[in-house]
């Protein structure tokens, strides 16, 4: 049955539906399974977790609504998808904001990251954890990118518009949203010259076959935010909430470990295949980019929130 029994009496397990949109091989799914394993074990079967990968249950465009409606109890979207509820979640897209992965991690577990998680409460949504995924890098087929001028006249594929459009505009490049499934072909045929993505996506989609230059820019991040809904959460006893929090904490550590390994492994794969020239932006080069990208900061500072931006900048 599909019934979601939240009372948990009469030995009927409390069913938790955890829905996400990525494949079973990903750290996200593995961590969701870890969460399932730990919670079911620690609660002696009081909780039963069903994990639905690959948009099987709800896709990108409806999982948030399904969560609010309590038709699912956990989702783990890319944090920038939450932008339809709160602009502040675009923070991971703001170019060259975080110094490195460590500073992103500190920001997320710190005061402001946690405040951001709680900011969705008026919408009936509770942020439970940040699941780090990976830094974003640029690839293109024209030239190695070392300075902002290198972007002039190039066309880039983006996963969504808004801030990312503005980022490329400030760099003097064009941008177009193209579905991920069509990206390989679009790059191969020159519909667009480049794209920005995580190393793992570039590696697994073999984009190095159709791109010549990879620039490790770490200019933004693709991280996930694990969300539950307050209706479900408030129906639980404090003990049950603690069981969930504990399982989530361990699942989160596991996810971050897997994601980090995957990022490094993918870089290795790309290097070993040797089909794409890789360069890394130095700190001084990044400063040049920050100057050119100032208009993006100016435009989004109020939308995202100055305090968050400052905290992220100073996060170490």
């Amino acid at each position: 049955g599909s019934s979601t029994n939240t009372s948990g009496t009469d030995n009927k397990p409390i069913i938790i539906k955890f829905s996400h949109v990525v494949a079973e091989s990903t750290p996200k799914h593995q961590a969701a399974l870890k969460f399932k394993e730990l919670l079911e074990k620690n609660s002696n079967g009081k909780f039963q977790v069903q994990v639905f990968p690959s948009s099987q249950l709800y896709g990108d465009k409806e999982e948030m609504e399904a969560l609010q409606a309590n038709n699912v109890q956990f989702i783990a979207p890319l944090s920038n998808k939450v932008v339809s509820f709160s602009k502040s979640f675009q923070i991971s897209d703001l170019p060259f904001l975080f110094q490195d992965e460590k500073s992103a991690y500190s920001f997320y577990i710190g005061e402001n990251g946690q405040k951001l998680l709680k900011s969705l409460e008026p919408k009936g949504i509770l942020g439970v954890a940040w699941w780090l995924n990976a830094q974003k890098v640029f690839t293109n087929s024209k030239r190695p990118i070392t300075k902002p001028e290198d972007f002039k006249g190039l066309k880039f594929r983006t996963q969504s518009g808004g801030l990312l459009d503005d980022q490329f505009k400030a760099l003097g490049a064009g941008s177009q949203t193209i579905a991920w499934g069509d990206t390989y072909q679009a790059l191969q045929n020159g519909t667009v010259d480049g794209q920005e993505n995580t190393l793992n996506n570039i590696d697994t989609a073999k984009l190095d076959e159709v791109q010549k230059y990879l620039t490790i820019s770490n200019h933004g991040r693709n991280d996930y935010v694990v969300l539950t809904n307050s209706k479900f959460w408030n129906s639980l006893s404090p003990e049950d909430q603690k069981l969930i929090n504990d399982a989530m904490k361990q699942a989160t550590d596991y996810e971050i470990k897997l994601a980090g390994e995957l990022d490094r492994k993918s870089l290795e794969n790309l290097q070993n295949r040797g089909k794409i020239k890789i360069n890394t932006l130095s700190d001084s080069q990044k400063e040049e980019f920050k100057k050119v990208l100032q208009p993006v900061y100016d435009k989004y500072v109020d939308l995202i929130g100055k305090e968050y931006i400052e905290a992220a900048k100073n996060s170490k």
Partner: peptide, 17 residues
């Protein structure tokens, strides 16, 4: 009604849903 009260907007263009 729910979209109106939640003030939710679209991801790309921030248009009221």
């Amino acid at each position: 009604g729910r979209y109106y009260t939640s003030g939710q907007v679209s991801t790309d263009s921030s248009f009221p849903l």
